[in-house]
């Protein structure tokens, strides 16, 4: 009886495997944010405002990455510019 139940229940969509997948994504994200300076979200927001004065970009067109190595910190800024970037003035 148990064997039969196992056959049906132990598959990809078991609740435990969903839990694991959700946790892996969440924990990876939270770890990446952990060492970052607290000003980062505000910096990202203000940068976006400045860029939007000149170029019509999406909310998610800008990514800010902060990385920490042994002896240096890198702030990486990535802006995806659309095909026809002229701002409607």
């Amino acid at each position: 009886m148990m064997g039969l139940l196992d056959y049906f229940k132990t598959n990809k969509s078991s609740s435990a495997s969903i839990a694991k997948e959700r946790l892996q994504i969440l924990v990876a994200h939270e770890r990446s944010v952990r060492g970052q300076p607290s000003y980062l979200p505000q910096l990202q927001k203000e940068l976006l405002e400045v860029i939007r004065k000149y170029i019509d970009v999406d909310q998610d067109a800008i990514t800010v990455n902060f990385e920490q190595d042994e002896d240096r910190e890198t702030l990486e800024l990535n802006i995806v510019v659309p095909d026809n970037p002229t701002k409607h003035t």
């Binding site: 229940k9 609740s15 495997s17």
Partner: peptide, 16 residues
Amino acid sequence: RVKLGDMLSVDDVQDI
């Protein structure tokens, strides 16, 4: 419950 897929296993928790 782990065997039934209802609970995270030791290995799952260790993977994370």
